[in-house]
Computed example of a mutant assay.
Amino acid sequence: MSAPSIEKTLTPKETFIYKDLIGPNFNPNWHFHPEFQISYIMEGEGTRFIGDHVQNFKKGDLVMTGPNLPHLWRNDDIYFEKDSGLTTRGLVIYFDHVLLSEPLLEMEEFYKINKLVEHSLRGIEFLGETRDIIIRLILELDKQKGFKRILHLLKILDTLSNSTEYNILASPNYMNAFRGGDAEKMRKVYDYVMANFKTNISLDEAAGLLNMTTTSFCRYFKPRANKTFTRFVNEIRIGHARKLLLEDNFNISQISYECGYNALSNFNRQFKSITDMSPLEYRKLFLNIQAPM
């Protein structure tokens, strides 16, 4: 996984900022910053990385991340092709932790907000009616001025804190183990995996990118990604398989090959290990159709 760079999004005089990000692709750099972030994807598809979490994203994605939690919304390769004609758009709120200081969070009235803050340290995906309400509130935020902007942001946070429609993303034991010196090394590994996961991934080649032996590379990679290199590659592949299963353009054998698996049995085993269901069960659950093998 690409190592995160450290960013600062707010100036000392800002409590929060609201950005409408439009471009051919989202920021391709794995990064983290000391502010909270709420991100709504209006246009764009790809793979979402939050801590050690890996999953596809598409239009409608709504996620809150806490301070110093590495994250990246990486668009599919087609978004990086010249003259693709594709556009991405994301509405993003960055706000400082001073709005939610520890003494404030200890107050009884802030119990649910405190839980929201705790969950955000692992990233939270919001779904259903909550997502619809928050999207409307985000779209209204730019119309607010002065202190009313703060009140509007607090309304957003209050709505999120009262929701039961969410998934916590990074694993419970995730910790940001990256250091500034890792950035270039891990970027090379990340780019290699994203470019080759559909065909052949070589542990020797990945290690060679960093001028390491395979043993040294595995020791280096695991604490920074909170998983083995093999597991990381499989999560990227299975994430792509999920997308293909929902599109319903291929049978499961074809999807297995398209995702870099030469043996259907291995594909089925890895898919169940990561999703707790078979590819056919996944397709039936989300499409409610009987797909041919």
Rank of each mutant, 00 (worst) to 15 (best):
L210P: 05
L287H: 04
D77L: 09
A241S: 11
E125A: 11
P12T: 10
H33K: 09
M277E: 15
S161E: 06
L287Q: 13
I17N: 00
N288A: 11
T47Y: 04
D142P: 02
R231K: 15
N196Q: 02
L169V: 15
R89T: 07
Y257A: 08
G208V: 10
I41W: 04
K284M: 11
A291C: 06
L137N: 05
G260M: 07
I150Y: 06
K243L: 10
L244P: 06
A183M: 12
R224I: 12
L116K: 08
L153F: 06
P223M: 08
Y40I: 10
G180C: 01
K155E: 10
I50E: 04
K8D: 06
K115S: 10
L105G: 02
G260L: 01
L137G: 02
K188D: 00
Q37R: 11
P172Q: 04
Q37G: 03
L245N: 00
E235P: 07
P103K: 01
S120M: 03
L203F: 07
N211H: 09
R219E: 12
T88N: 01
R136N: 15
I134N: 01
R237H: 09
G239S: 13
S161P: 07
V117W: 02
F197P: 11
F221S: 01
L151W: 09
T11V: 08
T11Q: 14
M194W: 14
S163L: 00
K115C: 09
Y261F: 14
L209K: 02
E35G: 00
R269K: 14
D52K: 08
L285M: 11
G239K: 06
C259G: 05
N200V: 15
K243W: 08
F217G: 02
E281T: 00
E281Q: 09
N251I: 02
F49C: 02
R122V: 14
C259L: 00
E108D: 13
S84N: 12
P172L: 03
D182W: 08
V233Q: 08
K143H: 10
E258R: 09
F221P: 04
S120E: 09
E235V: 03
S5A: 11
T199P: 00
E205H: 05
Y40K: 04
D142M: 12
M107E: 13
P4Q: 11
L285A: 12
M42N: 14
Q270R: 10
L157Y: 03
L154P: 01
C218R: 15
L104F: 07
I17E: 05
L141S: 03
Y94R: 11
K115P: 01
I255S: 01
K145V: 15
R224A: 01
F80R: 13
I255W: 01
M212Q: 08
F267D: 04
D52I: 13
G180I: 11
L285T: 15
I134V: 15
A263Q: 13
T164D: 09
P28T: 12
T9Y: 11
R242C: 14
L99E: 08
G123R: 05
L62I: 00
F32V: 14
Y190E: 14
Y192I: 06
R283L: 02
E108M: 01
Y220V: 09
T275L: 07
K148R: 13
I236L: 11
A206L: 02
E108N: 00
I50A: 03
Y111G: 03
D248V: 07
T87S: 12
A183V: 15
D77E: 13
T230Y: 12
T15N: 11
V117C: 03
Y94E: 08
N200I: 10
R74L: 15
L210A: 00
G85M: 11
N251R: 06
E109H: 02
E140Q: 14
